[in-house]
Amino acid sequence: MTAPTLGAALCRFVAVPSAAIAALVFAAMVAAALAAPWIAPQDPYDLRSVSILDNLLPPGEVAFDGTPYILGTDGQGRDMLSAMLYGLRISLLVGLASGVIALAVGTLVGLVAAFRGGWVDALLMRIVDLQLSLPTILVALILLVILGRGIENIIFALVVVQWAWFARTVRGVALVENARDYVDAARGLRLPPLRILFRHILPNCLPVLLVVATIQMAQAISLEATLSFLGLGLPPTRPSLGLLIANGFDYLQSGRWRISVLPGVVLLVLIVSVNVLGDRLRETLNPHLRG
C-alpha cells in the first residue's frame, strides 16, 4: 500500500469524532502501560516498596518514603495508581498476545482449509463449528481449571477460544479470493502454491482480519478480567485489572468503593475504546457492512 492511500485512509478513519477520541484514548493507554515502570510512583511487585501498614489509605495520604498516594492504597498497601498502571500493562499484554497468536493459528487453518478444500476443509470446519458452538466462558473455565493460574495458561485458554473466529473468517474471504481472476492468472504463471497463498491471497484477507482482531481483542481483555475476577486467571502476585477489581470487591460494602471502581473504570474505558475502533475499522474497510 502506498503512503498517500494509507494517509487518506487514516484521515477517513478519524473523520468520525468518536473514532478519533477512541484512537487517542487507546494510544494514551498503551503509552501509559508501556511507560508504567518509569511513571508509576511505586513498583507494586517489589515488596520492599509496599508497606502493609499503609493499607486502605484514602487518596492524598503520603507514604513512609514521602511519595504521595494520589489515588490512595488498596487492601495490601499498594499504591492504587501504580497497581492500575501495571494492571493495565498485564491486561493489554494478555489481550494482544492471545490475539496475535490466535490470529496466526486461525489464519493458517483458514488458508489451508480454503486452499486444500475437500476432506481437509470439511474436517477443519467441523472442528471450528464445534469450537464456536461451545460458550467461550465455559471452554476457558475448563482449560483454566485443568491448567491452573498463570499468564501463559490464560493466554493459551484465550487463544483456544479465539482462533476459530479467525479461521472461519479467513476461510470465507480466501474462498472468494481463490476464485478471482488474478489467482487464476498466478496459477497460469505456475507460481508455487505457497507463494500464491501468502503473497496474493493473504494480503486481501488482511482488512477483514484487522476488524476481527480488534473486536476479539476487546473480548479477550473482557474475558481475562472475568476469569481473573473469579480467581482463575492471573496469580495474585501480578494482578491484572480484573484481579484488582476482585480485590476491591471485598471492600465494597465498607464504603471503600474506589478500590474496586477505579480499576473498573480503566477496564471499561479500555474495552469501549477498542470496540469503537473496531466498529470504525469495519465501516472504513468494508462499506458493505455499513448498517
Binding site: 473480548q219 472475568t226 474495552i271 469501549v272
Partner: peptide, 20 residues
C-alpha cells in the same frame, strides 16, 4: 456497551449503587 463490558463489572456497579 452491553456486548463488550464484562458483566461482573456491571454487577459490581449495580451492587454499589442500588444496595450499598
Amino acid at each position: 456497551l452491553g456486548f463488550s463490558v464484562p458483566i461482573f463489572w456491571i454487577g459490581i456497579i449495580l451492587i454499589l449503587t442500588f444496595s450499598v
